Simulated scan of single mutants.
Amino acid sequence: MWVLQLVGGDAVTEIRPLKAGGSPWLIGWGDASAGGRAVLRVGTAAEARVQARAETAMPIADEHGVPVPDVLGSRISDEESLLLIEWIDGSSSQPVEPDPARLEALGAMAAVIFRADLGDIELPHVSRPIDGVDFDALRTASPHPLLERAARRLDGMHPESPTGLVHGDLWPGNTLWRDGEIVAVIDWDCAGRGPAGVDLASLRLDAALSWGPEASDHVLAGWEREAAEPAQDVAYWDAVAGVNTPPDLGWFVETTIEAIDRPDLTREVMMKRRDAFLSDALERLG
């Protein structure tokens, strides 16, 4: 009823889960003229702060040339948090073989996001990808020598970097494509104010996980072309991205296979590539 009131529909005609059998949900409706579709994100009341990050960041990104869904409405109560956004026709599926043009487009998109003017808008500071997950605790529960060594190497290192808008979980699975072009950047729950390296390294790591180490170079090339300057502290941010993964890659594997339609990937392949990416970043750090 809440969705129908927002969109002016007469009746719900479709409800379909879009991720792992649950939220977000594709909602379809009909009315006297035609009807339409939207995406409903449902969370607990405790997740209202996360929803607020997305609801704040998306219009800012939109104003600065980032393709994002329009926010149609939101509601927060003692029981739940709801966010209704525009449905955009597109796919997150990615090719089995690396596509340099796509990878460069992803890097360029990270640069476009970063240069959005935040002004006095309040967003949390973001210093690593997916900051809502305690990766330190995951390493404690399941020790991994390389991750532990990398975490020790990074401890106390805080390069000075300009801050701008960052997505906070930028990877191909959070983009929608149509005819070879990015038509939407979605899932802004981890958005905030932070260094450009957060999103750049996140994309570079995911490119390496999905296609091998050479793929991350195309992401960097796209970012530097769009930003018109060299990226700073690339080795540091690559190491940060590598450390902030589950020791056994956990849900990263299942999410990647499902979101970008890559059933050819395996946990063993992705772990080997993650460890190689992180080892290389540590070597470049010295």
Rank of each mutant, 00 (worst) to 15 (best):
L18M: 13
L18G: 06
K19A: 12
A20D: 14
A20I: 08
A20L: 12
A20K: 13
G21M: 11
G21D: 12
G22E: 13
P24C: 11
W25C: 10
W25Q: 13
L26F: 00
L26W: 03
I27R: 02
G28D: 03
G30H: 11
D31S: 05
D31R: 01
D31W: 04
A32S: 14
A32L: 12
A34I: 04
A34V: 12
G35K: 02
R37F: 01
R37W: 00
A38H: 02
V39Y: 02
L40R: 00
L40Q: 02
L40A: 08
R41G: 02
R41V: 01
V42M: 08
G43K: 00
T44Q: 13
T44A: 14
A45W: 08
A45S: 14
E47I: 03
E47S: 14
E47T: 09
E47M: 06
A48C: 07
R49T: 15
R49G: 13
R49W: 09
R49I: 12
Q51V: 13
Q51I: 10
Q51D: 13
A52Q: 15
A52G: 08
R53W: 12
A54H: 12
E55P: 00
E55K: 05
T56R: 14
A57W: 10
M58T: 02
P59S: 11
P59Y: 13
P59W: 12
I60L: 15
I60G: 02
D62H: 15
D62Y: 11
E63R: 15
E63D: 14
H64V: 00
P67M: 06
V68G: 06
V68S: 02
V68H: 06
V68R: 03
V68Q: 06
P69H: 09
P69V: 02
D70Q: 14
D70V: 11
V71Q: 04
L72C: 04
L72K: 09
L72N: 08
G73M: 03
S74R: 15
S74Q: 12
S74I: 03
R75V: 01
R75S: 09
R75I: 01
I76D: 10
I76A: 12
S77Y: 01
D78F: 00
D78M: 04
